[in-house]
Design a protein around this nucleic acid. Structure first.
Length: 288
RNA sequence: UGGCCUAUAAUAUU
C-alpha cells in the first residue's frame, strides 16, 4: 500500500497526471493518502474543478483532505468558498485553522484574519507568522511588530517574516537592527530579504554587501541582486550581474528571465538582441 | 506516503 503510494507520488512529482491516474485506478486499495495525493496533484496542475470532483467522491475525508481543497479555493481567489468549506469540515485541526487564516491574510482581509486568530483553539508559531506577514503586506508595520513581539516561540520564519515587513516598507534601519538581533543563524531567505531591504531604498552597496555575505547563494539571491539594479534603473549593471551568474553556472529560472528582460528594456537595442540570444540558449536547457 | 507561515520576478489588490 505504501509502495503503491510511493509509485503514485513518483508520477505526481513528474507532473504525469495521466500515469498517476492509471496507477491510482489500478491500486488494489486506495487509502485516504492516495486519494488526497490525487486531489493535490489536480490542484497543483491547475485543475481545481477536477480536484473538487475527486474530493467529492472520496469515500472518507480527514482534516488533511479538507485542507487541501480549502487551500486550493483560497489560492484561486474564492475566499468565500474556502470559508464555507472551513465551516462545514467536521474536524478542524491546527493546520486547517492556519490554512483558513492564511486564506484571509493572502486576501488582505486582516480583520477577518484577526477574528479567526482570536478564536483559534491552539494558535501556533505559523499562525503568528501569518499575522505578521499579513499586517506587513498592508503596510501596517507597527501592528506587525506588536504581533511579532508577542510570539511565544519564535522560529526563524518569524524573524524572516518581520524582516520582510521592514524590507517591503522601506524600513532599512529597522531591518538592520532586527537582523543584528536574530536569535537564529540567518539563512539564505534572511539574506535575500536584506538584499531587498537595501535595494528598496536605493542602497545598492548595501545590497551588494549582503549578496556577498550570503552563504549558499541560490538563484533567488542572484535574481534579487539583478532586480536590485533594475529597480534602480541600472540596466547595464543588472546585465553585468546576469553575465556573472551565467559564468558561474547558476541555474536560471523564470524570474531571472523576467528580470533580465526588464534590464534589456533599459539598455540599447543591439545589446538586447545579444542577451536575448544567450537567454534562448539557456532556456532550451532548462527543466532537464 | 497527503494539507498550513517567511526571500527574488510578474500579476492582481492598495
Amino acid at each position: 500500500e505504501i509502495t503503491w503510494n510511493t509509485m503514485l507520488n513518483a508520477y505526481i512529482c513528474s507532473k504525469n497526471l495521466n500515469e498517476a491516474r492509471i496507477c491510482f485506478d489500478e491500486m488494489p486499495q486506495r487509502d485516504i493518502v492516495a486519494w488526497t495525493s490525487m486531489v493535490t496533484a489536480c490542484v497543483n496542475l491547475g485543475n481545481l474543478d477536477e480536484a473538487k470532483v475527486l474530493f467529492d467522491s472520496m469515500p472518507n475525508k480527514d482534516a488533511t483532505s479538507w485542507t487541501v481543497i480549502l487551500t486550493a479555493y483560497a489560492r484561486s481567489g474564492d475566499i468565500l468558498k474556502a470559508h464555507s468549506l472551513f465551516l462545514i469540515m467536521p474536524v478542524k485541526d491546527t493546520v486547517a485553522w492556519n490554512a483558513m487564516l492564511s486564506a484571509f491574510v493572502n486576501a488582505g482581509e486582516m480583520d477577518d484574519a484577526k477574528k479567526l486568530f482570536d478564536k483559534m483553539p491552539i494558535p501556533t508559531t505559523v499562525s503568528w507568522n501569518a499575522m505578521v506577514f499579513g499586517y506587513g503586506r498592508l503596510g501596517q508595520v507597527s501592528k506587525a511588530k506588536e504581533m511579532f513581539d508577542v510570539i511565544p516561540r519564535k522560529n526563524l520564519e518569524s524573524w524572516n517574516a518581520m524582516l520582510g515587513v521592514y524590507a517591503q516598507n522601506q524600513g532599512l534601519h529597522q531591518a538592520r537592527d532586527l537582523f543584528a538581533g536574530f536569535t537564529y543563524k540567518p539563512d539564505v531567505i534572511s539574506w535575500t530579504t536584506m538584499i531587498t531591504a537595501n535595494a528598496n531604498v536605493g542602497d545598492l552597496d548595501g545590497a551588494k554587501s549582503c549578496f556577498h555575505q550570503t552563504p549558499c547563494r541560490n538563484s533567488v539571491s542572484w535574481n534579487a541582486m539583478i532586480s536590485a539594479y533594475t529597480h534602480n534603473r541600472l540596466g547595464k549593471e543588472a546585465l553585468d550581474f546576469y553575465k556573472e551568474m551565467d559564468i558561474e553556472g547558476i541555474e536560471v529560472d523564470e524570474s531571472t528571465l523576467v528580470v533580465v528582460f526588464d534590464a534589456c528594456s533599459q539598455i540599447g537595442v543591439l545589446k538586447q538582441s545579444q542577451i536575448a540570444h544567450s537567454h534562448f540558449l539557456n532556456h532550451k536547457c532548462m527543466g532537464c
